[in-house]
């Protein structure tokens, strides 16, 4: 089971965090801080897995962003790497050549896509098509709504 997933930049800025275990906020912050420092200190050719406290950390860097998952001991490391890759593929497909800025400005979408892929720390749907279909259905619902924000957004409200 995945315990948490973190996305952070090369500068150590946290871009997304998703926790599947209940920790107090203080502990979450501590873990995040320590793990980011640990991962950033590693060199490029190093192994993508590390034993860290009582979890197994699997991480991979895509351009300026690190994707980092904390798994339990019996989880499969290589497949966790591919789970990260699948998530990146989904983001890429949805945003069209995703970059860090897309995730910053549309963090809620990044969450929604992750929720379709992983639920409660377990992989839910591995088919790229099915996940994108689910997200498309959500977007459709949103478009059908009256574009109430239109006027406000353009300062007419």
């Amino acid at each position: 089971m995945m315990q948490f997933m973190l996305l952070f930049s090369r500068q150590g800025k946290l871009r997304l965090q998703k926790w599947y275990v209940a920790h107090p906020d203080k502990l979450k912050k501590k873990i995040t801080r320590e793990l980011i420092t640990t991962v950033l200190a590693r060199k490029p050719k190093m192994c993508s897995f590390l034993e860290w406290k009582d979890v197994k950390v699997v991480y991979k860097r895509y351009a300026s962003l690190y994707f980092c998952c904390a798994m339990e001991q019996e989880d499969n490391e290589l497949l966790t790497l591919e789970l990260i890759h699948r998530y990146v593929e989904l983001l890429d497909k949805y945003f069209g050549s995703v970059c860090e800025l897309d995730i910053i400005f549309n963090f809620e979408k990044a969450y929604f896509i992750l929720d379709e892929l992983v639920l409660g720390g377990e992989l839910q749907e591995t088919s790229k098509k099915n996940v994108l279909k689910a997200i498309a259905a959500q977007d459709l619902l949103q478009e059908e709504e009256t574009p109430q924000g239109f006027f406000e957004d353009h300062g007419l409200g």
Binding site: L79, E82, T126, S127
Partner: peptide, 19 residues
């Protein structure tokens, strides 16, 4: 079909079953 991942049939499900 779409459950094949880079030419490997359903790796996630295979691993879960083996587990």
């Amino acid at each position: 079909q779409d459950y094949t991942y880079y030419f490997v049939p359903a790796p996630w499900l295979s691993v879960k079953l083996l587990r």
